[in-house]
């Protein structure tokens, strides 16, 4: 009887489809606006009514990557003609590219902050997932005294507010010279992701039948060999999903990075907001920086789509 729909039900369903489409559009609008703004000339970024149709240009990305200063006087036609295409874009915006004494173009701070984010996120992910997988196996296969309490302890470290942990960590880092270093942030992010990785990986390993390893043990494998040759390949999907979650968390993290770094090891999340000072910021450049920063996460979200539920519930809800 469920297959037979009355006309009323069909109308209701159509209404639901329209509502879902509207909601999806509203939810995606801010992201669309970031992408659109990152391809606009500066004068079209803040117009009323908003500029929707425009010729996209990549000048925001050129400006994002280079160090610029205000043009005091217009470049001569010869200068303008001699400049490469990307430098002309900066001229068009009323600015010029800063060069050092050897006439080398100066990069902005953005690429180095982006690289910092990459180094710190990748390293801490490898460490957290590596340690987490071993520990999850330990909890999954062996009897551990006070297992529930230990697992609660592990999870509770993840729930600590960053500011609460950051105050003593800052004082301790100051003593050992780890403030504003990559290692300092890597340690914090590894600790933060480790508990998540243990919980999620435990769920994945619990699903691998014990019989696989037992058969291997009977065949003469050691426990270690069984772990590396039987369990790890079986858990590959889970490890990949956990790694992507850890990467995204470390990549997006803001509070620790704000408090622990200021220059050398600063990551992109505290850097991008610091570019919005007082006055009227160049939103096209901020949008360009945001867009590049969001790209990897958007890509990974798509890869991860079937594991999101599991990851977001620390492995409690499986599908």
């Amino acid at each position: 009887m469920a297959a037979v729909q009355t006309s009323g039900e069909r109308a209701l369903n159509r209404l639901a489809i329209v509502a879902v489409l509207v909601i999806t559009m509203i939810f995606l609008a801010p992201i669309y606006w970031i992408v659109a703004t990152s391809f606009k000339p500066r004068n079209l970024a803040t117009t009323i009514p908003p500029t929707v149709v425009f010729t996209p240009e990549i000048s925001p990305f050129v400006k994002l990557m280079t160090k610029r200063s205000q043009l005091r006087e217009q470049p001569t036609p010869e200068e303008y003609a001699a400049a490469p295409w990307w430098e002309r874009m900066v001229f068009d915006g009323g600015e010029k590219v800063v060069r050092d004494g050897k006439d080398q173009v100066q990069w902005s701070a953005y690429p180095s902050r982006f690289l910092n984010s990459l180094i710190i996120a990748v390293t801490s992910t490898v460490l957290a997932v590596g340690m987490g997988t071993f520990t999850a196996y330990g909890f999954s296969r062996f009897k551990v005294k006070g297992e529930g309490d230990l697992l609660f302890f592990i999870l509770s470290t993840r729930m600590l507010p960053p500011v609460v942990v950051a105050i003593p960590m800052f004082l301790m880092y100051r003593i050992v010279g780890l403030t504003d270093t990559h290692i300092g942030l890597i340690i914090l992010y590894t600790a933060f992701n480790l508990s998540f990785s243990v919980w999620l990986m435990k769920g994945f390993i619990d699903e691998i039948p014990k019989e696989y390893e037992e058969a291997a043990l009977v065949d003469g494998y050691t426990r270690m060999q069984a772990f590396f040759k039987i369990v790890l390949p079986e858990a590959a999907t889970g490890i990949a999903a956990t790694a992507v979650f850890c990467f995204i968390t470390a990549w997006n993290e803001y509070a620790f990075a704000l408090m622990m770094t200021n220059r050398r090891a600063q990551t992109a999340p505290p850097f991008i907001p610091s570019q919005v000072g007082s006055g009227l910021p160049d939103w096209t450049v901020i949008a360009a920086g945001t867009f590049l920063f969001l790209l990897p996460v958007a890509f990974f979200t798509f890869l991860l789509r079937n594991h999101l539920l599991r990851g977001m519930s620390f492995g409690a809800i499986r599908k």
Binding site: T24, F27, L28, P50, N252, Y254, P273, T290, V297, A298
Partner: peptide, 29 residues
């Protein structure tokens, strides 16, 4: 569903910052 889930995967600080422009009294969308 995947598209709807995108906002929560993004960095709160970085994307949140952009809402400053969206909320702007003069030029906000």
């Amino acid at each position: 569903t995947t598209l709807l889930l995108l906002p929560m995967m993004l960095s709160m600080a970085v994307v949140g910052l952009f809402w400053k422009l969206l909320y702007d009294p003069s030029w906000g969308v």
